[in-house]
Amino acid sequence: MVTKKKVKHIAKLARLGLTEKEIEKFRKELSSILDYFEQLKQLDVTKVEPCSHPFFLENVMREDEAKQEPTDRVDKLIEAAPERKGRYVKVKSIL
């Protein structure tokens, strides 16, 4: 059973604002979705390796060098930020 407190905690971890009404709604929904996963408890998987990707992946390395991007592309990336100052992305003060 998922409690309201738990829902608030998860929402905070997810950086997701929720209204009081939604907290209650998600509490009910999460509880019933989690019930659905109970069926997996029947399976004994102690000896099974977890699979994070369908196929074996190797790390791909490259030299740690700055790659020169065209300036107009860099400009476009900066322009996507809602708040800017010159060529900087503006963030609320955190101190």
Partner: peptide
């Protein structure tokens, strides 16, 4: 657990 079940499905 789901990742392990994924191995079984694979």
């Amino acid at each position: 657990k789901a990742q392990k079940v994924r191995t079984l499905i694979k």
